[in-house]
Amino acid sequence: MAAAEAVTGVRPLRGHYEAYYRHQAAHRLAYRDLYRRFAKVVQDMASARGHGDFTICDLPTRLEIIEVIRDDPATAQEFEIPVFQETLATYARTDAWLALGYVSWEGSARGLEVYRQPFAGSTP
């Protein structure tokens, strides 16, 4: 979650990211193992930088660690799609809508009144 927060720029994250990861881990054995390996990699890198726990690192440190992982062909091959791109895909269908000015996203119960009102979000 700390990595997802850094990649998406959303703080604090709502529960749908955790629900997504739990769903993948529950239905795909490979994801459970992959998430464990990813957690170990970021923890080790945080420790190497003198931080005890990746999750309590400040944002610049987390981003720096993530950039290293994404730029290293070995770790990027393993984590880029199932961790970073899937997180960003989840972001694209949820929080990105809020960033664009919507009050909710498709897939959530939005009611039958708000869409009939003038849009009060972002400017052109």
């Binding site: 959303v10 694209a92 990105a96 960033a99 052109p124």
Partner: peptide, 30 residues
Amino acid sequence: DYFSDAHIESLARRHWRSGAQMVEALRPAL
């Protein structure tokens, strides 16, 4: 009143570095 799923899909399937970068790419869809 349809937010083009195809547009979102095509964006989501690209490789992005950050959410902010993705939002800027989505903005023309508005």
